[in-house]
């Protein structure tokens, strides 16, 4: 497949954008995630799948800087993320990073209009021209298929799918390079899910984003991810190209996961 070939080519002549080495997080004596290592290249989409409690959300929180891992290192664009001052890390997470929450209510300001939600990141990095901010917000609402006349409505007046699309627009408006997504299609019905996935796929390709996407939905990773990591009990039990892992799973748990999907 084209995407796969691209991924392989990229590895040949480019530096990884995001490197994780030996990442470990304990909750007391319980394991959150254990010894996770991977490289993510520019423009690559990495899927992380596993059942509930497998440590995938813990891993994502550690990567995005919401949780502090106990061991291991995280490097972004040659910079040590864990050793960074908080100012710098938060600036990074406002500009070059983005985080799409499973529940749009966690990622949106529900009391602020759609335009204000999209504009917040712009204003946070110093945009001070109302007209420009509003034009950019209108443009981004269009890109995520929200009608321009909804710009002054609050997200509470939006449907679940619209809220999720608004959250994506709000995150992508500053042109991030790395996007973390936690179950972006969770809680949406299948037709809305399909449209959202289509939209995401288009945006990822157009903007050349690197994405780390956590999900339990294999269809999502099949559509979006170049590479796949399967987690169980806090460990990565299998990783490889998405189609390879899904079509020919080697580990017993991956086989179980793939065979558990209902065929309609």
């Amino acid at each position: 497949m084209g995407a796969v070939e691209l991924g392989i080519c990229a590895k040949g002549n480019e530096q990884p954008l995001f490197q994780v080495d030996g990442l470990t997080k304990y909750y007391g004596t319980r394991v959150g995630c254990l010894d996770v290592s991977f490289d993510l290249f520019p423009g690559e989409v990495l899927g992380i799948v596993g059942e509930s409690g497998s440590g995938k959300s813990t891993l994502l929180s550690c990567l995005a800087g919401h949780l502090r891992p106990d061991l291991g290192s995280v490097t972004y664009d040659g910079r040590d993320v864990l050793g960074m001052a908080e100012t710098e890390r938060r600036r990074l997470s406002r500009t070059e990073w983005a985080y799409v929450h499973q529940n749009p209510r966690d990622g949106l300001r529900m009391g602020v209009s759609a335009g204000g939600n999209v504009g917040e990141r712009l204003m946070a990095i110093g945009a001070r021209h109302y007209g420009t901010i509003r034009d950019t917000a209108t443009d981004w609402l269009g890109r995520v298929e929200i009608a321009a006349d909804r710009i002054d409505d609050r997200p509470s007046a939006f449907s679940g799918g619209m809220q999720q699309r608004l959250q994506i627009a709000r995150n992508l408006v500053t042109g991030p390079r790395l996007v973390f997504m936690d179950e972006p299609t969770g809680g949406l019905d299948v037709s809305v899910q399909a449209r959202l996935l289509d939209l995401l796929r288009g945006l990822v390709r157009d903007l050349g984003l690197s994405v780390i996407i956590v999900t339990h939905d294999l269809a999502v990773v099949r559509l979006l991810a170049d590479r796949l990591m399967v987690m169980k009990g806090g460990r990565v039990v299998e990783q490889g190209l998405t189609d390879q892992v899904l079509d020919d799973p080697q580990h017993a748990y991956s086989q179980l996961l793939v065979s558990s999907v209902l065929q309609v």
Binding site: V112, G116, G119, E120, R121, M123, A124, I125
Partner: peptide
């Protein structure tokens, strides 16, 4: 940035 969101 949030302060400007209020003004926006």
């Amino acid at each position: 940035g949030l302060m400007h969101v209020k003004l926006y």
